[in-house]
């Protein structure tokens, strides 16, 4: 068996006095397509944020490729968290897609405008969106930009938090197809999904974690 890309060992997160989850063990291995299921408030988002190294654990640890995380920026570049309501930077959509490539962790990688345009087309959006200011975007468009921003950085693990919530069915299907294509392009890549849409999780994942 190959070394897991990212793992939790005996992990616990506490918010205030309440343990959101505790004693959690999880391995995300190359090629995995994992669903995180649970009622609202079970801590699905908290779990994705912990995997991305955004919030510190109160108990246990996050492992990267089987060992301790040495550099969080490097870890986060490999394990990308796409938020349900992404925070977009002031400026244009394309400026947002470019932004991650300004960080030292991606030294040498460059933003690929051609790839962004083709991705946009596959998501069923007009190429004109790239030049638009983020101010006027609808909720669904913001979500699309957030997803593209994560995909274009070529992470190994994609953490998708309700990536199609609020999208029309045909757009949701396009997102599923794009993510499937992204995973198929490199068999090391893995994805972790949360969704309110149980049939969707059945379609796009092959294992699940119940919180």
């Amino acid at each position: 068996m190959s070394v897991p890309l990212v793992s939790l060992r005996n992990a616990g997160r506490r918010v205030g006095e309440r343990w959101v989850w505790r004693g959690l063990d999880l391995d995300v291995a190359p090629g995995d397509r994992l669903a995180v299921r649970g009622p609202s408030g079970a801590g699905k988002t908290v779990l994705l944020r912990a995997l991305a190294g955004l919030d510190a654990l109160e108990e246990g640890e996050v492992l990267s490729e089987g060992g301790p995380v040495r550099s969080l920026p490097r870890h986060r570049a490999a394990v990308a968290y796409a938020a349900q309501r992404p925070a977009l930077f002031e400026g244009t959509v394309e400026g947002n897609l470019r932004a991650p490539f300004a960080f030292a962790v991606r030294d040498g990688d460059a933003y690929d405008a051609e790839r962004a345009r083709s991705l946009l087309a596959r998501l069923g959006r007009d190429a004109g969106l790239l030049a638009q200011s983020v101010d006027g975007l609808s909720g669904g468009e913001q979500q699309t930009v957030g997803l593209m921003r994560a995909l274009l950085t070529d992470p190994t693990v994609l953490l998708l938090d309700e990536p199609t919530a609020g999208l029309a069915p045909e757009r949701a299907e396009a997102v599923e197809a794009v993510v499937a294509g992204f995973l198929a392009a490199d068999d090391r890549r893995a994805a972790v999904w949360t969704s309110h849409d149980a049939p969707q999780l059945d379609r796009v994942t092959d294992q699940s974690l119940d919180l």
Binding site: L54, R76, A87, L88, F89, F103, V105, T153
Partner: peptide, 15 residues
Amino acid sequence: GLVEARLALGATRWE
């Protein structure tokens, strides 16, 4: 939210 978005995309604390 913006600060966290930068961190999530691999920014260092200074970036």
